[in-house]
């Protein structure tokens, strides 16, 4: 995937990004750069990362997602990861990777409800 090709949508005061490709190597770094730049530009209150399209999340990708949430937090933006599939949840827990400290929701609607609107 080329730089800047991950669609970032504005939903109210929040940003919604839908991940459908493997977040490996250079793609992961571009993903983080693009997201953090969008947060700076828009002053988004919250960030939703939708991973419904990922049938596999290995420890590397899980770490990229968790790190991205931490980076956004440092900038003052809360992140909710939504749409972790049943088999992905089962696999991560069996591996011992529970993504503690990362907020999650079942779907985009639930995730949006967890994010406060910017005053």
């Amino acid at each position: 995937m080329a730089r800047g090709s991950i669609p970032i949508l504005r939903v109210g005061d929040n940003l919604l990004v839908t991940v459908q490709t493997d977040l490996h190597d250079a793609v992961a770094e571009a993903f983080q750069e693009d997201l953090l730049a969008a947060i700076e530009k828009t002053g988004a209150a919250g960030l939703l990362i939708d991973v419904t399209g990922l049938d596999i999340v290995d420890s590397y990708v899980a770490r990229v997602l968790a790190d991205t949430a931490k980076m956004a937090r440092l900038m003052g933006t809360d992140t909710v990861i939504v749409g972790i599939r049943p088999e992905v949840a089962a696999t991560l827990v069996r591996m011992g990777y529970t993504m503690s400290g990362v907020r999650t929701a079942l779907n985009v609607d639930d995730g949006l409800a967890m994010l406060p609107a910017r005053r």
Binding site: E87, V88, A90, T91
Partner: peptide, 17 residues
């Protein structure tokens, strides 16, 4: 099954890495 496919696919990813 779906869970087993995800498990072995993820293991493949970890071990290949």
């Amino acid at each position: 099954g779906t869970f087993a496919v995800a498990a072995v696919t993820t293991a493949a990813s970890e071990l290949a890495r």
